Amino acid sequence: MHEPMMVNGAPDDVGTPGRLVHRARRIVVKVGSSVSSDDTDHWGPITADIAWLHARGKQVVVVASGAVALGRAAWPPVGHRSPKERRACASVGQMRLTARLQHRFEAAGLRAAQVLVRHDDRVDPAAAPRLAALLDDLCIGGVVPILNEDDCHRIEGACFADNDQLAAWVAEVWSAQLLVFLTDVDGVFDRDPAKPDAQLLRHLGAAALHTVHAGGAEAGGKGTGGMRSKIEAARLAASQGCSSVIASGVRPAPISGNALTGRCTVIEAFAGQAGHDPRATRRTGEPVRDVMEA
C-alpha cells in the first residue's frame, strides 16, 4: 500500500493528530459495531488507551455501538430484520455489551457509567444542558460515561441515523475539542481499502469533505453507518469547533499508537470555529434544573 497522502494540499504539520490530542481537554471516542461486537475483544487496548488519556488529564466520553449485533449473536430471532426485531436484539445485546465494557474498564483501572439517550433529547431544549451537566459531573468524578441510543425505544424515522451522528451531537452539546472514530480500517481511503493501490487520506479539508468518495459499510458489515456517515458526522463536528480523527480500533494501541502517529485521517475544525462553545448561553456553574427536582 502506498504512503498516506494529503487532500487539499494540507502541509505535514497541519492537523497532526498528536497536536489535536495534546490540546484537547474533552474527547469523545466512538467505537463502531465492527470493533465492539467482533469475536476478538478489542476493548482491552481501547480501554488501556482511554486510561492513557486519563493519565494525561483528558476527560473522555465513549459512544459504544454493538448492542444490536451482540443481541443477534446471542439470541438470533426468527424472521426478517424488522424494527421490532431490532428493539428486541438491542434489549438482549445491551446487557452483553455493558458486561463486556464493565469488565474491560475495571481491568484498566477505570470506573464507567452507562448513559442512554433518545432522539427526543435532540429537540428538547432542556435535554442538552442536562446531558452536558451529567457528563461534566461524571468526568470530574473520574468516571467514563458510555453513551448509546436507547434502541429499546427506537422508532424508525424518529431516531439518530446511527451512532456516528449521535457522537457528533454529544461532541457538540458537551463542547468537546476532539472526536475519535475507531473503526475496522485505518481511516478514509481514496478508493476501496482492499485494493493494493489504495491510499490513506491523512487530512481532509473542508472542501474535500463534500467530494471525497467513501461509500459502503465498514468491512465487518455489522453497523448501520459506514465511512460516509463518519465523514458527515465529522463535518458536523467541525462546524461546531470540534476536530475529528478516524482510525483503526482493531490495531494495538489505537489512540496512543496509530491515531497519534498519523496512521489515520484527520478532519480539523473549520476556520473560525475552533474553540467555539455551543453552550455559551449556559453560565459556568449555573445549576441545570432536573426534572426529578420538580
Rank of each mutant, 00 (worst) to 15 (best):
D186R: 08
A168S: 13
A128Y: 00
Q94E: 02
F181K: 06
F105T: 02
P83V: 01
A126P: 01
R130Y: 11
V173P: 05
D137C: 08
L179F: 09
A128R: 11
C89Y: 01
D137M: 13
L101D: 00
E149Y: 06
R154T: 10
L166M: 12
Q177M: 01
D121I: 00
A168V: 03
A132E: 09
P145K: 04
R154W: 04
D186P: 10
D151Y: 02
C152D: 02
D162E: 08
E172D: 13
S91R: 11
E85I: 15
P125D: 06
F181I: 03
F160A: 05
C152W: 02
E85C: 06
R154P: 04
L116K: 02
L101A: 04
S82E: 03
R118P: 01
P83A: 04
L179A: 07
G109I: 06
A133W: 13
G187C: 04
V173M: 15
A158Q: 15
W169M: 09
V185K: 05
V173T: 05
A168L: 10
L135E: 07
M95W: 01
T183E: 07
L135W: 09
L97T: 03
I146G: 00
R118I: 02
D124C: 10
L147H: 00
L135I: 15
A168K: 09
C89R: 08
R111L: 14
T183P: 09
A128C: 08
P145F: 05
G93D: 01
R86N: 12
A99T: 06
D150A: 15
G142Y: 11
D184H: 13
C159W: 01
D164I: 04
Q102K: 12
V115S: 07
A171T: 02
R111D: 07
A167I: 03
A90C: 06
G141Q: 07
D120Y: 06
H119F: 15
V170E: 03
R100A: 09
D164Y: 11
G142L: 10
D184Q: 12
R111H: 12
L134P: 01
R118D: 14
A158W: 11
Q165R: 12
T98Y: 03
Q114I: 06
R87K: 10
V117M: 10
E172C: 12
Q177A: 12
L166H: 03
V143L: 07
V143I: 15
Q165T: 12
V180Y: 13
R118M: 10
A108W: 07
D184M: 11
R111Y: 03
A113Y: 05
V173F: 13
G93K: 02
G93L: 01
R154L: 11
R118L: 13
V115L: 08
D186N: 12
I146C: 05
L166D: 00
C89T: 10
D164G: 04
A90S: 05
Q102E: 13
R86A: 14
D124R: 10
M95H: 06
L178G: 05
I140M: 11
R104D: 11
F181C: 05
R130H: 13
L101T: 01
R96A: 06
V170C: 10
C159D: 09
E156F: 00
E85K: 07
E85M: 14
F181H: 14
R96V: 04
K84V: 14
